[in-house]
Amino acid sequence: MDTLTDRPTAGAHLPVASHPRNPGIPLDLDWVASAAANTSAIERRAASLPGRRSVKKDWQAAWLLKAITLIDLTTLSGDDTPGRVRRLCAKARRPVAPALLDALGMPGITVGAVCVYHEMVETAVRALEGSGIPVAAVSTGFPAGLSPFRLRIAEIGESVAAGAAEIDIVISRRHALTGDWRALYDEVAEMRAACGPAHMKAILATGELGTLRNVARASLVCMMAGADFIKTSTGKEGVNATLPVSLVMIRAIRDYLDRTGHRVGYKPAGGISKAKDALLYLALMRDELGLPWCQPDLFRFGASSLLGDIERQIEHHVTGRYSAAFRHPMG
């Protein structure tokens, strides 16, 4: 339990973890098979969470600033261009108007990372040069993960070579859906190897796994195979990050920590667009895993529109007046 009450890590943007990476463990099928997830109970817990946790005033402002440092600012569109990506990177460097940050005594806040397709990695790396903000690349035939396996592995290598510090891989949903955990383990382990020094986030595409039990099992298998992060969604599934899914994955992370001592990060992605949601997720991480999981090396939001709502809430905090979207520079 000591690991849950560690001091927070200091830096706001951390491509480098302050703890040893998860080396993975041999596949433990008994453990995987024993994973349980009671859907109704998990939904009740998730439903009561907003009523149980509330942060107000200065505390809310501080929490929202923290949330900004945890955002993987993302663009994953077919019409992405270098210009669009450079604009996003500018926003990543300066996510909130400096006057507002100065008013809060918190200058220099940046987002956690910028997340793009492979083709945009070089552009993003150049645009973020000197900022310390890492570039994450979605990889392995994102979002479906159904291109030839050797190409998916090769894609990781190319993105790392292009400067991506983090690789968001997608798992083969079919392995989870058919219960072929060995195949999933082997696939993820090989991808992890291909990542080399880059941190690997394993996207489970939870909206396509059918049951929370499958989410629990897939989470365990990905961690056993060496994932640095487990991530809910590509953002392209019908259902993306939800609180029930998050509870299941967070509990899996905790069980993995308890049994192996290895820390794995969590990234909910897709569907988190309100400041209030971000506070809720932070409270969930704080209560379920502790402060280390409220830092960018162990927690990220995969989000594109969340930042805009947070900016408005921060301006409201500073001025006492409700804000408008157009007052904040777009990304």
Partner: peptide
């Protein structure tokens, strides 16, 4: 706010 940013205290509500 910087203190709270580090401690993530809940504060009164």
């Amino acid at each position: 706010i910087r203190d709270i940013f580090d401690t993530l205290d809940y504060g009164p509500a």
